[in-house]
């Protein structure tokens, strides 16, 4: 590559974008960090109060619980979505009837509005699930799952219903990059389907596995739409996610500054998780 003089055109292509990005993204981020050191409720006067908000956060059972719930939800959903979508992708990649129809059908939930889908499921849980369960004499399920200690499972179900679509398509793309000869070679060695999968298929689609993990984790840690439509955080505070608490209490509870501190802690935690994931990525020597 021969080195060229830096063209002014390149500068003009990037500087406005940089400016806008700083103004609309970085500036509010810094502003949020600033609020977190005040006692401002959104309107009216305020004082600087140092780290008091942060200190209070670590003693606030509602906030601590929202982190526990969010992580529990994200871990379970990420695992479930990835396992399910891997199985579906394997099935779609095998010799089946109507492959295109199935593929289209399995991807459809991805294009739908999460909020509206959650409203549909809300009705399903409150009006269909109890009557179907009592007809089948499954007394444990005869109550709306969203009103019990298992409400979080209801949210996981909705997240999976929609989330599996995306990961399936990625795994399928991965599986289709594996040439037929690889399998033939391993079949000649007399490998069982099980070893075949773990020794041949999985290592070859490992990069897709990692991408899926990263994207899914990022999405599910910020869960919001499903909660609003399904439980509104209940019963009690059982299904309040971090994003939900920041929104509800930040705007509605007069805790703008306090929830800004919460958001700052959330930012740090997400960055730590991202760094951890990048570490794992590098460990696997996968190009991101």
């Amino acid at each position: 590559m021969f080195r060229m003089r830096l063209s002014w055109a390149y500068i003009w292509m990037t500087i406005p974008a940089l400016g806008l990005f700083m103004y609309f993204h970085t500036w509010p981020t810094l502003h949020g960090l600033m609020y977190s050191f005040t006692n401002w409720n959104g309107f009216g006067p305020f004082q600087w109060i140092g780290f008091s908000n942060y200190a209070a956060l670590f003693k606030d059972p509602q906030v601590i619980h929202s982190y526990l719930f969010t992580f529990q939800f994200a871990v379970v959903t990420v695992i479930l979505v990835n396992v399910l979508s891997l199985i579906i992708a394997l099935a779609l990649n095998s010799k089946i009837v109507l492959p295109k129809t199935f593929k289209a059908l399995y991807f459809m939930p991805y294009v739908l509005s999460t909020l509206v889908v959650s409203y549909i499921f809300n009705y399903l849980f409150s009006n269909v699930e109890p009557s179907v369960a009592s007809a089948l004499h499954l007394t444990n399920l005869a109550q709306n799952i969203l009103g019990t200690n298992w409400a979080w499972v209801g949210i996981v179900i909705v997240a999976c219903w929609q989330g599996v679509a995306f990961n399936t398509i990625l795994y399928l793309a991965g599986l289709q990059t594996i040439p037929e000869e690889v399998y033939e070679a391993s079949m000649i060695d007399g490998a069982s389907p099980w070893t075949n999968f773990w020794k041949v298929t999985f290592p070859l689609i490992a990069p897709f596995f990692t991408i899926n993990m990263v994207l899914a984790a990022k999405n599910y840690l910020q869960v919001f739409d499903q909660i609003v439509a399904l439980t509104n955080g209940g019963p009690g505070t059982a299904t309040q996610s971090v994003a939900f608490v920041i929104y509800t209490n930040g705007f509605g509870g007069g805790e703008l500054a306090y929830q800004s501190a919460n958001a700052a802690v959330f930012l740090i935690i997400l960055i730590l998780i991202a760094l951890l994931q990048v570490r794992v990525l590098q460990g696997r020597e996968v190009q991101l």
Partner: peptide, 16 residues
Amino acid sequence: AAGDQYESLLQGALSK
């Protein structure tokens, strides 16, 4: 009272 805080508290406690 805003943001249904104490109502949620009652809901959580009674449901458990």
